[in-house]
Design a protein around this nucleic acid. Structure first.
Lengths: 322, 322
DNA sequence: TTAGATTATTGAAACGTTTCAAAACAAGAG
DNA sequence: CTCTTGTTTTGAAACGTTTCAATAATCTAA
């Protein structure tokens, strides 16, 4: 691999001149610059990012750290982030990590957005600093170099519960996800608050848990149906996949949705509007979520720390499942 | 940020000893190693990847370069790649680039998988070398350090055409995508070959083009319907999204699918089986595609160049749209 | 012309690691 | 004791850049 030194030799200038020329410094005359540039092209020079970053102590790359590429969800968030990253002249890398987090730990990136339950709070808190601000999408953290861009889970759930209550439902069940999900637990907490708000009684037995997947929800719902004589007239679910699983279980047991039981999801994933029946759900504007997060990050990279990121809008989408 | 030097000072050893200790060299005694490690922890030392990579001239990271995060497609491929990458003790970064490709050009990664029409052949050819082998998913290239892991587009289309021909269709149309897609053009070429194979005549007017999206396909199909008195009894589409768009256009014009016109897609995306009517299509095993690509890459990283990656299986999925 | 100011170029140090070769130390053998 | 051998530690160079400070070249004005 040819280096700057090789370019300098080829162009008959010093290494420093070559460096200035390639970086477009105004110190260098036009002729020299051209000489260097054509020498660089001739020998196929490419800058070495490691050396550059080592010297400059920054990479102009930000990282998005997620738990895995599965799921119908990330693409849109990433699109939003990417837009802002490009606008700021940076690049984004996306990493799924479940253990080592090398890229996060070894100063690869100048900033990070985190949506990854594998990472513990302690690590995130330890990593955040002036040289590497962090935005979390999946937890609340309190650190001058960390901003949280969180969803309005409780508001969203409240829209759903209100809708059901308005339509006369008095006994509403909830399908939650695994305990380690911040959003999931917030949604459950919101559910309980909303029930109170609308004077509905909470039947603890009607709060069931699956694992955020369609199949897990189908199974637990099937079991629930078989074990319970009387049932809620509506379920609200911590995400759309589980709503779909629940609906399938209900249908398989001869229970009609929404005639016998109404079901409301959360997230409004792409599939939801194509599902049969189309799913009532709470929509997150995912691309905007990504944008908001990225903007918060760049604000911190610009040494501004004293602000609160704007809320990401959320809305209830009424379709046929309720 | 504390450096190795700080660790060395804290532990009362030399920098080299600290380095050996942290990297687990067998030269170092147990006690020294422990001393160093606890010093490192105490002062919050984290290795600096830039310095390390500069010295070692490798990063143990491979990059996946795609054109954008849109589309229902990438996640599964990425999952496959990620599995293999982790198995090899590397990390993967995913980048969407439309212009600068900084991460690809500046020796950030030790290898690359490319599915990105924004990148031109010349650049890819220029970048590939022993220190950075490349696997392409979206074009044929001939270079000792590049392997192509391509789909069996023609075979796939042939399954579709055969299915339609077997069901008595004599006039079959095709909805292609934009000209710059390798897979799209291969599918079109395969379509023409298959027509010949089954003695069907090609009506050039029945080959229409959209842009791989549902909406573009809906629009061109709508126009096609309005402009043409007689029509094929079946369409085969270069991807599932366009098949869905076409079906919607047909339905909006009072044409029933599959009763009046059969439609077959390509890719078998998640949505296809939930679509109304569920879509007949050609399935790509996307996760396996990713795995195959990653395995080819690691073989090259292991200095093995003389092999052909295995074919990625492909199959026809019969649902209700045909 | 020439001193002084301005512009263009260069040498060398530094960034944080790794790793070779040399040095220091410890242990056995004579 | 001293010599050898083997083990552990260390000093220093190197990786490819950037950038400060210093030098060289050119220009301006008296």
């Amino acid at each position: 691999m040819p280096t700057l030194k090789d370019v300098a030799k080829e162009a008959n200038v010093s290494v420093s001149t070559a460096s200035y020329a390639i970086n477009g410094s105004s110190l260098i005359t036009k002729e020299t610059k051209e000489k260097v540039l054509s020498a660089a092209k001739k020998i196929g020079y490419r800058p070495n990012a490691s050396a550059k970053n080592l010297k400059k102590n920054k990479s102009e790359i930000i990282g998005f750290f997620l738990s895995g590429f599965k799921g119908p969800f990330f693409n849109e968030i990433l699109e939003g982030v990417q837009d802002i990253v490009i606008k700021n002249g940076y690049e984004m890398v996306v990493c799924a990590s479940n253990s080592k987090h090398r890229l996060l730990v070894e100063s690869y990136v100048d900033g990070a957005i985190i949506l990854n339950f594998h990472l513990d709070d302690y690590t995130i808190d330890f990593l955040a600093n002036e040289k590497m601000p962090i935005v979390t999408l999946d937890r609340e953290m309190n650190n001058p170099y960390i901003k949280n861009v969180l969803l309005q889970n409780k508001t969203g759930i409240d829209f759903g519960v209100k809708h059901l209550a308005d339509n006369g439902h008095r006994r509403i069940g909830f399908i939650g996800g695994s305990y380690d999900s911040y959003d999931g637990e917030m949604r459950l907490a919101g559910f309980k608050e909303s029930l109170k708000k609308y004077n509905l009684i909470l039947n603890e037995n009607d709060v069931i848990r699956a694992e955020f997947t369609e199949i897990s929800s189908l199974l637990v719902m099937d079991q629930y149906i078989k074990e319970n004589e009387t049932r809620p007239t509506a379920f609200i679910c911590a995400n759309d996949e589980m709503a779909m699983g629940a609906i399938k279980a209900l249908q398989q047991n001869g229970i009609s949705v929404p005639k016998d039981i109404a079901v409301v999801g959360f997230d409004d994933i792409e599939l939801s509007k194509h599902f049969d029946p189309p799913l009532s759900t709470i929509r997150i504007q995912k691309k905007l979520w990504g944008k908001t997060a990225a903007e918060a990050l760049f604000k911190m990279l610009d040494k501004q720390y004293d602000f609160n990121p704007p809320e990401v809008p959320i809305e209830f989408i009424h379709r046929s499942s309720s």
